[in-house]
Nucleic acid binder design. Sequence first.
DNA 1: CCGGATCCCATAAGATACTG
DNA 2: CAGTATCTTATGGGATCCGG
Lengths: 123, 123
Amino acid sequence: MVYYNLSSTNLINTTNYFHTVMQKIKGNESPTTAAIKLIGGKWKLCILWQLSQKKMRFGELQRAVGDITQQMLSKQLKEMAKDNLIKRKVYEVIPPKVEYSLTAFGKLGIPVLTELCNWASKK
Amino acid sequence: MVYYNLSSTNLINTTNYFHTVMQKIKGNESPTTAAIKLIGGKWKLCILWQLSQKKMRFGELQRAVGDITQQMLSKQLKEMAKDNLIKRKVYEVIPPKVEYSLTAFGKLGIPVLTELCNWASKK
DNA sequence: CCGGATCCCATAAGATACTG
DNA sequence: CAGTATCTTATGGGATCCGG
């Protein structure tokens, strides 16, 4: 059982940590921009969400996400694989078969991303 | 002292909740896109971060964020105020003075946004 | 079935100048 | 000081066709 303490007391420590980080990489890339690069754009959060349910094939994913075009899905998946959010497993068969699933790092993000969506939907 | 239980056990409940939400607003707007609209873009997370430290004036905010132009800052602040993330307080003086601060809803988001950045920086 | 290649448009974001 | 106005450039995202 893992608990994340997000009380105000601990928040101060956490924020101080980020202050340090932001100073260190001054002018370069802050944790905030890093975060937005990871999950920014119209589709990535949704794709992560789908893959958190189960590993999926390309077409399956496309139907699940909804209105996304093949091109965009392909592009996003590629970026997300590069960012180590998802794994791409290719089966060398005909017709081709590719399965996508979350990496360990990707799985780590699911709880916080869930909380994020939870918060956003309270607006 | 508030604890958010993000264990796998509770994650299932949380994710089931989102599944319900996503079904309900099928074709319209999912919580994931709602979330990305709130904090998406290059600057909003950074602005939220700054305002979580203290309320700030326009120029102060611009220096703190860094390379943002007045135009972008103005635009983002306007959107964020519309989204109920921040409050805009105008002092009717000369020279003009405007203070920005988080709303209650905005403050609610800080812990999860902090966790988000924390996670992203572990990549 | 899983994409790549190409072309196109809408919006995001930046630069600069100006004002109550 | 706190913005607007105007213009330009970069990127996100879409449509269609093609290929292993």
